[in-house]
Design a protein around this nucleic acid. Structure first.
Lengths: 226, 226
DNA sequence: CGGCGCCGTCAAGAGCTCGCTAAGACTGGC
DNA sequence: GCCAGTCTTAGCGAGCTCTTGACGGCGCCG
C-alpha cells in the first residue's frame, strides 16, 4: 500500500486530504508542523510527502532540506503563495513539484501518481544487493539467492527481511519492526516476530538454531549482520 | 551539456524558449509538430522535453505515449488549457510535470532543473530486444517471435508483456502492473492480471501450466525471467 | 533455589490468493 | 446492422499464507 505523509497546519485542509486519500486506498500519516513532519518521515518512510510551506515552527524550505539530507522521497509542495521566487526556491531546495492552492483534487492525485511512478525505479538503484557468506539479497528485484538457488519468501517474510536489511548492522526495535511490517495497530504482537524470525532463519541461516545474521538482542529487538 | 527538446507549433514561443535556454547554456533542439518531435527525440536523446499539447498533427498525449514507449526522459507539458482533465490525462500518460501558459521563465527553469535532477541516476540501457529459449520480444518493433513465426498479441496483452519485459528479472507488483496497463483507477482489479497472465502464458510458454518465464510470486506480483 | 519474563518452536484452522473457465458486453470494420 | 475479435466480469477448487494458542527452555533476579 502506498503511504502518504501530509504536512499542513490547517486542520480542515489536513482532514480533507486525509479523507480523499484514504478513500483511494492510500495509507496516510499527518503532521501539523515541521519538526513532527521530519520525525514522522523518518519513522514511517512515506512514498510521497505533501508539504505546506506555511508551517508554524520551521520554514518549509528547511523541511525540504531536512528531508533531502537522507532521502529522495518525492516532495510535492502545496502553497497559497503564487510568487515565482517561492516556487524556484522550493524546487531548487529539492522539491519535486509545486501546486498552488486552491487546487483540484484530481490534479493533485495525478501529480502524486506521476511523482510516485518516477520514484519507483530509483528506489532500486542505490546499492540494491546485500551479500553475506550464506546468501544474497537483491532489494530491487526482490530476490534472495542461497547456494545458487532462489529462495521463495512469503510477502510478510520478505517485508520483514527488507526492513532488517535496510538497517544492516543496526539494532531495530520490536516496536519498529511490528509497526513497519504489520502496521501501527500491531505494535505489541511480539508473537509474530518470533514466528517469522524463526522462518527467516530456517530459510536463510546455515544453522537456524545458531543464527549468525539474524541476531536477537534480548528485550530490545533484532539486528541483521551482513 | 544538458540537451533540451522544445516542441511547440507557435514560432514565437519556440523562439523565446530557445533564446532563453541557450543563454543559460542549454543545448536546444526544436520541433513544431508531433511527428518530428518523436523523430528528433530518437535522434538526439534529449535530457528533457518541453511539450506543447496543441500540436497540428498528433494529440499531445499521443506524443507522450510515443516517447514513453522507449524512454524515461522527463517530459514537461506546456499548455494554455487549465482544465483539470487535461492535466490528469497528460500526467497519467507519462508526463512528469504540467505548466500552464502563461508561465514565468524562472519557474519553468526551476521545474526543468527539478526534473533533470530526479532523472540523473538513470543507468544507461537500450536493449530493445529480449531473447529467451522459447521466444523473442522486439520492443521497438512491437513484435513477438516464437519458433520462427510471429505471435499475435492483443493491445492489452502486448502492453502487459512490455511492462514485464522492461523489468526483466525484477519483481513487478500487481499494483504497478495494473496501474501501468489499465490506469490508476484499476489498481485493485487483480482479476485482470490473472486472466491476461494466463493468456500470455498460453501464447508464449512451452508448458503454460508450468511457467518458466512468467513467474508468479504469491501475494507480491509477477516476474519475467529471460 | 524458585519464580518470572522472554524467546524459540510447533501445529492447526481460518482466510486469502491464484489459476482456470466460460459467458456476456463492447468495439471497430465491413 | 452484422460479425469477429477483444475486453470485462463472475465463480469455483486447490494450495498456500497468516494468525493464533500452547508449551518448553533459558537466563535473570529476588
Amino acid at each position: 500500500m502506498t503511504r502518504v505523509l501530509v504536512v499542513d497546519d490547517e486542520p480542515q485542509i489536513v482532514r480533507a486530504l486525509v479523507i480523499n486519500l484514504k478513500a483511494r486506498k492510500y495509507e496516510v500519516d499527518a503532521a501539523h508542523d515541521g519538526a513532527s513532519a521530519l520525525e514522522l518521515a523518518a519513522a514511517r518512510h512515506p512514498d510521497v510527502v505533501l508539504l505546506d510551506l506555511g508551517l508554524p515552527d520551521l520554514d518549509g524550505v528547511e523541511v525540504i532540506r531536512g528531508l533531502r539530507g537522507w532521502t529522495r522521497v518525492p516532495i510535492i509542495v502545496l502553497s497559497a503563495r503564487h510568487s515565482s521566487d517561492e516556487k524556484v526556491e522550493a524546487l531548487d531546495a529539492g522539491a519535486d513539484d509545486y501546486v498552488t492552492k486552491p487546487f483540484g483534487m484530481d490534479e493533485l492525485l495525478a501529480r502524486m501518481r506521476a511523482a510516485i511512478r518516477r520514484a519507483e525505479p530509483v528506489v532500486g538503484e542505490d546499492e540494491s544487493t546485500v551479500v553475506t557468506e550464506g546468501f544474497t539479497v537483491d532489494l530491487a528485484a526482490k530476490k534472495v539467492n542461497r547456494d545458487g538457488a532462489d529462495v521463495r519468501l512469503t510477502p510478510t517474510e520478505w517485508h520483514l527481511l527488507e526492513v532488517l536489511v535496510r538497517n544492516a548492522g543496526r539494532l531495530v526495535s520490536q516496536t519498529q519492526l511490528l509497526q513497519e511490517v504489520w502496521g501501527p495497530a500491531y505494535r505489541t504482537e511480539t508473537n509474530y516476530l518470533r514466528v517469522y524470525l524463526a522462518q527467516l532463519r530456517r530459510k536463510l541461516e546455515a544453522d537456524p538454531s545458531r543464527p549468525r545474521h539474524f541476531i536477537t538482542e534480548p528485550g530490545m529487538g533484532y539486528r541483521f549482520e551482513p
